[in-house]
Design a protein around this nucleic acid. Structure first.
Lengths: 216, 216
DNA sequence: TTCAACCGACCGACTGCCTGTCGGTAATAC
DNA sequence: GTATTACCGACAGGCAGTCGGTCGGTTGAA
């Protein structure tokens, strides 16, 4: 049976299927046949819309990236929110939009099969999130909250670390270890930014629930 | 023609070939046939010694890991070397032994094809190097050089960042950017460790060549 | 010293799967 | 009515891993 749809619609159908399948079985573990079957199209159709399997992954990451950074950017630009609160909200948005916009992608990245996808997303996050946060930090410096000659490099370090250690399973942790890791992390960020000791910690406990279990 | 060798010897021949080929063409880009051809053995022989292609990679990383961390550990344990100097020497050893012990592996990890290998090595480095450096930091704390309640977490952050930003091509940089990135990095490390401002920077310029082009 | 049994190293044809291609067909737009 | 665009599915080429069988060195008994 032959069903014709608009290119955009088909493209998104394929991406939705790939999103779910890559999440469940990983990129390498998912064959193009799996995708064809789920969408209900023929091989040729898939390769009409995407030039390769990897191209599908790149499109998936791009789609994800736009949604994720868009939400974060919006909050970051709202100068009516105090600096520290805004930082926390941006970080929270990065988690939440990760859940809602892309059904499975963030939850299943951590499987070892998905190394390539993970690396690509890491690149997007580090190079996308860092400038957004740096902008807020600069405001904080003007207001005398922070003090560092290297706001960008600081945030790059913070984002890289959080993204690797808290998101990945590169470092395996018990829940307890995780808690103390987060405590240490916040203190270290305060030092890097030259913030008053405890200033970030206090704000965090006001907003995020104290356990911080889903941080970044 | 049939040549019989001891299992260990064959195993290492295969690993040497894989080392070079993975370095040149990446893991995915190297077929088992490539390896067979270079070693001069049949398919069955390869699978007599290794249970899968990924098993070869794991063995390669293990071999690399032992050599790399062994060298670093040795230096770290030498308490006759002053703390700051020892840190720099350990970091240098991580670079140098990367060149000498494993011909190609470190130079070619950065190709996108090698994401899985890279992730595995990253895990090994973060979980292996951090405790070694933390030991030295603890000595530094006792001597009053550093001051932090979280030496392990500090070093985890430092190692993770350096390994991601300076080793990978996740962040693309010009040489100039690289230099300023290193400058900022050293200052940030001083802050994290609670070291006197400039104390690490000075030591670095004494030892490593000032440009620090091959740092970590 | 000889011989036979054994075992681990080795072989290569084969299977099944996978990605990407291509010539052709049907539906839609103009 | 024609051009474009979405769609189809058979096919080619290459891949990892399997398996039944072969060969050579070693060991121990005759």
């Amino acid at each position: 049976m032959r069903v014709v749809k608009k290119a955009d619609e088909r493209r998104n159908e394929i991406l939705d299927a790939a999103d779910e399948l890559f999440g469940q079985k990983g990129f390498d573990g998912t064959s193009t046949n799996d995708i064809l079957e789920r969408v209900g199209i023929a091989r040729g159709t898939l390769y009409h819309h995407f030039k390769s399997k990897e191209d599908i992954m790149d499109a998936l990451i791009e789609r994800y990236n736009v949604r994720l950074l868009g939400a974060a950017q919006e909050i970051a630009a709202d100068k009516s929110i105090p600096v520290v609160e805004r930082i926390i909200r941006v970080v929270m948005a990065l988690n939440i939009s990760g859940e809602s916009s892309s059904k499975e992608i963030m939850e299943h990245i951590h499987k070892p099969q998905n190394a390539l996808m993970h690396q690509k997303i890491q690149r997007v996050i580090i190079n996308g999130v860092t400038p957004i946060l740096t902008g807020i930090i600069r405001e904080g410096i003007e207001q005398g909250l922070f003090s560092t000659p290297f706001p960008y490099e600081c945030m790059e370090m913070v984002v890289t670390y959080a993204n690797t250690v808290f998101d990945d399973d590169i470092v395996t942790m018990t829940n307890e270890e995780r808690g103390s890791r987060i405590l240490a992390f916040v203190c270290n960020v305060e030092r890097l930014l030259g913030a008053e000791s405890g200033s970030l910690m206090d704000a965090m406990q006001m907003f995020g629930r104290g356990d911080g279990s889903s941080y970044e």
